[in-house]
């Protein structure tokens, strides 16, 4: 659901928005044409946005925001609900705007989006700032960098015992347990997963699922909040 004006055409959405901001007629008409061309909306500019695809509506929203030449462009989850192609197109558009000097403030649930687009990232949870920095700085904050997640059959406190045993493994930086799930933050060491499985089997703990992930902002978020991302 977008908040575009459904009673107006795409072009009129841009023109009236600029008119609200008191931009002169000649200037706003010229700017609207430029933006419609650059955002590939010219062919459908005289249709109402109800007929637009999600990607087109999202592009028109960004174009609308640019009509009054803002010092900072605020975008709230600009790619939510877009298919991978449309998302990629939106990323290219934002990167291009940024390279031309437009400051962009972007909120997103997609860590790879933040990683790909942003120079500075702030991670927030429940309205609190948890961490801020460049993507590289943030990723370096994940202990060990690599994350192994083990799903186990936790009958009587086996998780705690296993966690203690895993802690002693070479390369392991930190072990966190949450019910029947163990998270292992470690440096990249040959055979890390195999070793972890061996330790588990020595402890007679049944591992039902295992997952290895590379250093990422997703891992950092998980590390900071103890939860995966919510939508």
């Amino acid at each position: 659901m977008n908040n575009l004006d459904r009673s107006l055409t795409g072009r009129e959405n841009l023109l009236f928005h600029a008119e609200y901001f008191g931009i002169r007629k000649r200037v706003r008409e010229q700017r609207a044409e430029e933006l419609l061309t650059r955002f590939q909306l010219v062919d459908r500019a005289d249709e109402k946005p109800t007929a637009y695809s999600g990607g087109m509506a999202q592009r028109l929203k960004v174009a609308r925001a640019l009509m009054h030449d803002p010092a900072i462009l605020f975008l709230d989850e600009p790619t939510t609900g877009l298919d991978p192609q449309a998302r990629r197109a939106m990323w290219d558009l934002l990167a291009e705007l940024n390279s031309k000097g437009q400051t962009i403030f972007l909120t997103t649930h997609y860590m790879e989006e933040a990683d790909h687009l942003c120079r500075r990232i702030a991670i927030m949870d429940h309205g609190k700032l948890l961490e801020a920095g460049t993507p590289a700085q943030l990723k370096a904050n994940v202990p060990g960098g690599y994350l192994i997640e083990l799903q186990i059959q936790n009958k009587d406190g086996e998780a705690a015992t296993l966690a203690t045993a895993l802690q002693t493994m070479a390369g392991v930086a930190e072990v966190k347990t949450q019910n029947d799930r163990i998270r292992l933050y470690a440096n990249k060491v040959e055979g890390l997963l195999a070793n972890a499985m061996r330790v588990a089997s020595e402890q007679n703990v049944m591992v039902t699922d295992a997952h290895v992930s590379e250093p990422s902002l997703e891992n950092l978020f998980l590390h900071l909040t103890g939860r995966s991302l919510r939508d």
């Binding site: 908040n3 609200y20 008191g22």
Partner: peptide, 20 residues
Amino acid sequence: PLVVEFGWTKEIEDRLLAPI
């Protein structure tokens, strides 16, 4: 228009973005 703009489409936001 208000019922639709507040209720379904939330497009009242488009008008509320105006500097007024």
